[in-house]
Write a protein that binds this DNA or RNA. Sequence first.
DNA 1: AACTCTCTCGTCCGACAGGACGATTGTATT
DNA 2: AATACAATCGTCCTGTCGGACGAGAGAGTT
Lengths: 221, 221
Amino acid sequence: MSDETPRKVRLVIAEDETITREMLARLLALEDDIEVVGTASDGVKALTVLRHQKPDVLLTDINMPQMNGIDLTNTLRREMPDIKVVILTIYNDDDRVFAAIKAGARGYVLKDSPPEETIAAVRAAGKGEALLHPSLVSRVLSEFGRLSTQKAADNAVFAELTDREREVLTEIGKGRRNKEIADRLFISEKTVKNHISNIFAKLEVNSRAEAALLAARQGLV
Amino acid sequence: MSDETPRKVRLVIAEDETITREMLARLLALEDDIEVVGTASDGVKALTVLRHQKPDVLLTDINMPQMNGIDLTNTLRREMPDIKVVILTIYNDDDRVFAAIKAGARGYVLKDSPPEETIAAVRAAGKGEALLHPSLVSRVLSEFGRLSTQKAADNAVFAELTDREREVLTEIGKGRRNKEIADRLFISEKTVKNHISNIFAKLEVNSRAEAALLAARQGLV
DNA sequence: AACTCTCTCGTCCGACAGGACGATTGTATT
DNA sequence: AATACAATCGTCCTGTCGGACGAGAGAGTT
């Protein structure tokens, strides 16, 4: 009853090479549930098209004149966050893959993959899902684990801190000096120093810079 | 030439419900490229089987007696890191999904998904790839972005830094003092101070703690 | 009652940081 | 040739930091 007339996924394609762009457009237009509502040959032109068409999904290359696909994704994330982005590129390095994901891309397809994968990724994006090539998923998962285990590791030492020490540490993380911290917490500078000494001991660091870094990693700042 | 005799994926299944376990074993054994070399009804027994069989992939439930699937994955990661883990469960909440991934799982299939998905996940794991349900991928990507964001924001100011200043900033981010930095970079402490002054000015901060934080957000540390 | 932990405040002091002046050299650009 | 910038090094000085001693009050535990 809800999907008796499945609304088509409205798609815009950004790709600088004319042949590739046109091929993509025609190929994707063949799908019953996809409607290509615009194309663009660079990032800036793509923005114009996107603003007018307000599509569901953007399929974009990374390497383009004027504005590359990742910057475009970043811009889109701020300006039109509802538009899902699928990256289609030849680049397979971690830097670009992670950058794209951080920028908000919800699909990442390699150009040497079969067209079905591109179609599936666009379709998934249209449904609010995400589709990455399995080899990419694996790398993202590894990085994910790396990012969040380090956080968990720091968690242990942070647990030793008292509430007051945590407050002081937060202030340190804001780059404040002892006197400032004292004024803000309505205690003497001496007390601040005591807390800081204790914090250093518990966190096993020797300077406020290091402490600030730990605080940052822990999300205190 | 390399895949004339594709080696079968050796699989162990851990699942406490007998019916489900047997069904899974028989279903997966039907695949030409999968060989079920063992089953277990709880986490502890699974460990024993795994130690003997050294399979390529473990397909495991989360909710099991003795030892649950996530703890099992964690143990496996330390003891036999080569064994890929695919989680098969009814749980779909972020906590468990993320916990499983942090533990090192490289596949996560929901029990209400079609069997093909389980098969595909096992197959992907066997190839060192990862397969998650698209809706899970989407959530992992979001969390991933959340964990490692901000960055690009400060890019502008960082661009002003010279290479040498960036080096010095990196050292600051490690909590080193001026003299240490000087020794490491083979320059005088005075020069370090100069660089630091310039860094502060360019980053518009007043202390090394703040500078360290920016460096951290920028990924310099 | 004795103990432990947290938070509070004090003095003294050496070490370090960072700003205020300065300067020279080399390289790249105009 | 002139200009600009990056990198290097110098002295002086003030302020802050952080450790080394200290101690007292209050809450909670054993």
